[in-house]
Simulated assay, not measured.
Amino acid sequence: MIEKVQIKLEKYADQIGFTGSFFCLVHCILTSGLIFISSTVSHIHDGHDHDHGHVFDFWGVLDISMILVGGVAVYFASKKTHSKPIKWGLWLSYLVYATSMLIKYVGFEPVWLAVLSYTASFALIALHLANLKFSHSSKECDSKVCVS
């Protein structure tokens, strides 16, 4: 049973990773837009003195869930690939993405960190797509985990 789940995770890791990274990017862009609009509206009045720190509410749980799903997808996708650049790129992009997402919970959130997070998400999407293409065309790929 566990072996079947593991094979399925390996087989579809790139699809899961691509989808998760894409949804994360959409989530981040939409919530950034909503935060910008609500922040602009709240700054209209004087006496604004609350901070904009992130908390582990619904959105925080969603952020952590996306980080965990991304990690599982990268783990299984990197097990499947025979390309060292793709494997290292997946892990590097994931670590940059996860770190930049988690840093905002300690109150440090400059714009360049958000740009870094978006860039890592785009890189994860591109690398998962490249790995998907590579696993289709690779003669070395094990037939149990390659997507047919």
Results as ranks from 00 to 15, higher is better:
Phe76Trp: 13
Phe108Thr: 04
Met1Trp: 08
Leu124Cys: 09
Ser148Ala: 05
Thr40Phe: 11
Glu140Trp: 02
His50Arg: 05
Lys8Ser: 02
Ser143Pro: 01
Gly60Arg: 06
Leu34Tyr: 08
Asp51Pro: 01
His45Glu: 09
Asp51Ser: 13
Tyr118Lys: 01
Ser143Asp: 14
Ala13Val: 07
Ile44Val: 02
Val55Lys: 09
Trp59Ser: 15
Thr119Met: 08
Leu102Pro: 01
Asp46Phe: 03
Ile64Cys: 04
Gly47Asn: 04
Ile125Leu: 12
Asn131His: 07
Ser39Tyr: 08
Trp112Cys: 11
Ile103Cys: 10
Gly20Glu: 07
Phe76Val: 11
Ile67Pro: 02
Trp112Ser: 10
Tyr105Trp: 01
Ser21Asp: 11
Ile37Leu: 11
Gly17Phe: 01
Ser148Val: 05
Ser138Ala: 14
Val41Lys: 05
Leu102Val: 11
Ala126Pro: 00
Lys4Cys: 05
His52Asp: 13
Tyr118Cys: 05
Lys104Ala: 02
Met1Ser: 03
Leu132Trp: 11
Met66Tyr: 11
Phe22Thr: 11
His52Gln: 04
Thr31Glu: 12
Ser137Leu: 02
Trp91Glu: 04
Val96Lys: 10
Cys141Glu: 12
Ser65Arg: 05
Asp14Val: 07
Ser100Tyr: 06
Ala73Ile: 08
Leu25Tyr: 12
Asp49Met: 01
Ser93His: 02
Trp91Asp: 06
Cys24Asp: 13
Ser100Val: 06
Val96Ser: 10
Val69Ser: 04
Ser143His: 06
Ile29Arg: 11
Val145Asp: 03
His27Leu: 15
Val72Met: 12
Thr119Phe: 13
His50Thr: 11
His54Asp: 06
Lys133Ser: 05
Ala73Gln: 03
His82Met: 12
Ile103Thr: 14
His52Asn: 13
Thr31Arg: 10
Phe58Gly: 10
Leu92Gly: 15
Ser32Leu: 14
Leu25Gly: 13
Leu62Met: 07
Tyr75Ser: 07
Lys79Asp: 02
Ser42Met: 02
Lys133Thr: 00
Ile16Gly: 00
Thr119Arg: 00
His50Asn: 09
Ser137Lys: 12
Ala114Gln: 08
Leu132Ile: 09
